[in-house]
Amino acid sequence: MGRVPLLLAMLLCAPAFAVDPGPDPVPSVMWEFYRQQWLMDAPYQFDARVRVIAPPFAEDARQVPLQVDARALPGTVQRILVWAELNPLPKIVDFQPGPQVLPWLAVRIRIEQATALRAAVLTDDGIWHVGSTLIDAAGGGCTAPSVVRSEAGWEERLGQVLGARFPREDFSRLRLEVSHPMDNGLVGGVPEFYIEHAELRDAQGQVLATLELFPAVSENPNLSFDLRRAEALRLSLRDNNGNTFDAAID
């Protein structure tokens, strides 16, 4: 076969919307594995416009602050998938912000060792934009004994929600902290027990955003969202044992 037909064949086989992923900005042994699992064959690119922000090192590997900011992306964000590559349970959250919620999220997470942190952001053109950062750690955040379970009366506080909203110039910040041990099943004798689903609704019951949580989220989950309007909100949470918790922020 001559060169020209080969080139033609390649062009015809490639998906019409193929994009060049560009170089991976962080050293990684697990990227390809998780890409195949979660992004499958969808087109993607490493994209510095997706900012994954964490401290350079984990002072407390059980409570590491992580921020994902995809506001600089053009188009509409449909989904934000976040994971810690070298965690035994890597998935952190699967966030689907509706039009009233900014593509921005802050959460505190567990990490088991120094790792790459990834946020894959799906825009409405079907392309995943992948933001990355590295964090150093002494480690052990996923297998450390629960702090919550060592505190007397934690069962009575299960599902309690602390919340507040904070005005910004052109949006409204919502901050929440939920009492829950978020057991990940990696501590001896304690089975998985964690909040797996959260929904934000407006006063009319319209869903504004959904958030799937995974056990890499720290105990007593601490979450921040930015909403376009400072309207009354309802929060509903469900854990993997079927407990449901509700909150209202006026």
Partner: peptide, 14 residues
């Protein structure tokens, strides 16, 4: 920081 955060939040569960 967690102590300072909790000081500015209130119970919102129903």
């Amino acid at each position: 920081y967690p102590q300072y955060e909790q000081a500015v939040m209130a119970r919102v569960d129903r």
